[in-house]
Design a protein around this nucleic acid. Structure first.
Lengths: 246, 246
DNA sequence: CGGGGGTTTGAGTCCGTTCAAAATACGTGG
DNA sequence: CCACGTATTTTGAACGGACTCAAACCCCCG
């Protein structure tokens, strides 16, 4: 009677919202102690292993999720089976709020890329908090507005820039979260996903990505091995994005 | 001392928010009479002729706009001069709320495509209304969430569908707002924009659009003349989008 | 040590782009 | 209302980036 692998583990003794470090970096940071207590009592915490699905595109939205730790990919697929990776979500970020506020079904699937702990907050609890706390709504407004800016930026980049430059842009943003500097002073990025997903994030095929990676290595801009990216000189990468160096 | 053409006309005797038909179709529909009075007293109404700019990408956001009548294009341009048309906005819709809620500069320019009347509401007035009316914030949350869904849908379509099918999709949505049926029972769409803008909406070059239009005409799906599109049989258009007819 | 998913490579094709020129529509002033 | 100049749209030819399909290669894991 082993548990099927696709069922996440319910955490029986989860972290309290009061001590949750992620909360301070999230939209919940301004809640009163009473409201945090409410949140804490209502949340359901689960853990997901890489590949497990938190919610699937088309599912009814019954609340929103909050990532305590881990990395989640939001993947969107069309009728023809084509798919893109909309974005990555990290600890402290909410999940599923778009569908919640639009009163729609999920327009994307959420899949754990790393072992992740995620709390679920039911719609009724959330709507209570929102009525109670006007600034909570404003936080979500800010978040959605920035998501929208990112999405529109992506539209523009996808139609106007070749894959090579889009990849350079992506490495630059991944560097901030997943980058470090090694002994030789090179920037090293530990990618949280496989090649397929990097391609899906760029709106390109895996084959195209492989070729583009090869080209960047030939030009000494970056070297890739498994999920490690080494960038010997950041200026070279920046030159990709802005050849003129303006 | 004629007024320069790029300066919009300030309307000295504008329509009251109480009688504004557009308000009922907008996020403002649920305001109390007191709040409508506040809005009415604070708004500044201007008219714009085709080509005039309501706000420009990079400008500081000092409030939001509300379209009383007309058609506005939101255009986004990158450093290299590439640009896409993000969306069209119509009477009853707000403008510039993304920048307002994200506390950012405008990420796109708003340009009148048709003669348009637009009201401006200052940030201080708006923030007062938002504090006062939690449901106003929820309305904007819903709007932003739907905008985000559209933007992500656009990302997916742009990377996975050819221009021809994207154009078919576009015609289908334009039909709802700009379409009518003529004497012979054909659907006729009066495009509110020039070819360049249709291309920018598809994320394609004008030349590509011209060729694609030619192809659709050859296949008897639609015929284009100036800004009129005639669709003799809607099924043909639907077949473009879903060739299998599933 | 043998699968099997993921990645890479190769060859060929297609779609969309670029650049240039011709045709057409448009607005403006006479 | 027509003529003119300008902007837009269309057409053509050639190029190129990304895709498809297919096979080989590689890990990684059982």
């Amino acid at each position: 009677m082993a548990k099927p692998n696709h069922i996440p583990d319910r955490v029986s003794n989860p972290l309290s919202c009061f001590t949750c470090q992620s909360r301070n970096r999230s939209e919940w940071c301004m809640l009163s102690d009473d409201d945090v207590a409410l949140l804490d009592g209502a949340k359901v915490t689960k853990t997901y292993r890489p590949g497990q699905i938190i919610f699937a595109q088309g599912d009814l939205c019954k609340g929103i999720y909050c990532i305590e730790s881990g990395v989640i990919a939001l993947r969107k697929t069309d009728a023809g089976g084509n798919s893109v990776l909309v974005r990555l979500a990290h600890s402290g970020q909410a999940l599923g709020y778009r569908a919640y506020f639009a009163r729609e079904e999920y327009a994307a699937s959420a899949e754990a890329l790393k072992p992740s702990t995620v709390c679920f907050i039911e719609a009724s609890v959330l709507s209570g908090l929102l009525k109670h706390n006007p600034t909570l709504g404003l936080k979500f407004l800010e978040h959605l507005a920035q998501d929208l800016a990112n999405a529109e930026e992506t539209v523009l980049r996808n139609v106007s820039l070749p894959v090579r430059i889009r990849l350079a842009h992506l490495l630059l943003t991944l560097k901030d979260r997943y980058g470090s500097v090694n002994d030789e002073g090179n920037i090293v990025i530990s990618l949280p996903m496989k090649r397929q997903d990097v391609a899906a994030l760029l709106g390109a095929r895996p084959e195209t990505l492989a070729r583009t990676i090869h080209a960047l290595e030939t030009d000494k801009v970056a070297s890739f091995s498994a999920r490690q990216v080494m960038i010997p000189d950041l200026d070279n990468l920046l030159d990709e994005i802005d050849p003129a160096g303006i």
